[in-house]
Design a protein around this nucleic acid. Structure first.
Lengths: 158, 158
DNA sequence: TATTGTTATACTCTATAACTATA
DNA sequence: TATAGTTATAGAGTATAACAATA
């Protein structure tokens, strides 16, 4: 069943036993995430925006004046991690960070016009990738997959 | 082992608009992967084995004498990346790497007895997590989710 | 005292490039 | 020439800890 170690590998498919791995949701989610990430990273390379940054820009468009602590809570990242991501996007001119007048501990984050433009461009790549996934899904399966993933993720929230 | 997200930023729910993000499969897979990874990293901390290393150990159990190039192809990682992972596991005494007699360019990888024991212990944690996911899924939904994820991942495999 | 945010530091994971050994 | 594997180096992403500013 398993033919390896015989010097026959030439890049052709190799018969490999995956054991119980394919039956694990954790394994399959990881594999899917890797495949999706590799694909979108290639598409986005020219934009200089990573998938995580896309998500941040999209949140800023939907929630102008959001602050970094709120974003850190949403993504369950340390505030220091968000601080670095934000600094990079500010330096690139894609977002603005202005101290709030009411409570001067906060910085209000917003997309700049250039950030909006980059977000539009990135969104086109993202939606092209989503269409590629629809091509292998039957009607209704996208909604089903999203529902299942949401429930699984929530099983570990809190 | 560093883990992502330690809950420090958790607070009360904040009213936030996620825009179109929740409708993207890429976004949802990423969120699910993060949640699953954070949870299992906590469980595995004491074993010193990461989720990726679990996957490697499981492949070695199912495919004794597999070599690193084959593993690199399977996981679409560079051979240099696999080389480092393997070196670490060899140093920890969990796997052995012995030069193949037929073709001395190859190294045959195998679990050591200690590696087998660690794999058993880690597998118990993994399967406990999988059970936690089953608790939020109806009968048949695990198979459905796995099938959908597999098809989506394959949509990007070459 | 508590909260928001920054900086310094370190660890993991990954790739690229240059290398050795073997075929 | 081609393949398997290692090492050096670098970059992205993350966390922890210590800090400053503000409430």
């Amino acid at each position: 069943m398993k033919t390896r170690g015989n010097g026959k590998q030439r890049g052709e498919p190799v018969a490999v036993d995956f054991g119980k791995l394919p039956g694990y949701i954790g394994y399959q989610v990881r594999q899917a995430q890797s495949a999706i990430f590799r694909d979108i990273s290639r598409s986005l390379r020219a934009t200089g925006v990573t998938p995580g940054e896309f998500s941040l820009l999209a949140m800023l468009r939907a929630n102008p004046d959001i602050n970094s602590i709120t974003l850190a809570r949403i993504y369950q990242l340390d505030k220091a991690t968000l601080s670095l991501s934000i600094k990079k996007l500010v330096k690139r001119g894609l977002i603005s960070s202005t101290r709030s007048a009411n409570d001067r501990r906060f910085y209000s984050l917003r997309l700049t016009p250039e950030g909006s433009e980059v977000l539009r461009r990135v969104t086109r790549h993202i939606e092209r990738q989503e269409s590629a996934m629809d091509a292998v899904l039957a009607p209704g399966e996208r909604a089903m997959l999203i529902g299942l993933l949401t429930r699984v993720a929530r099983a570990f929230d809190r």
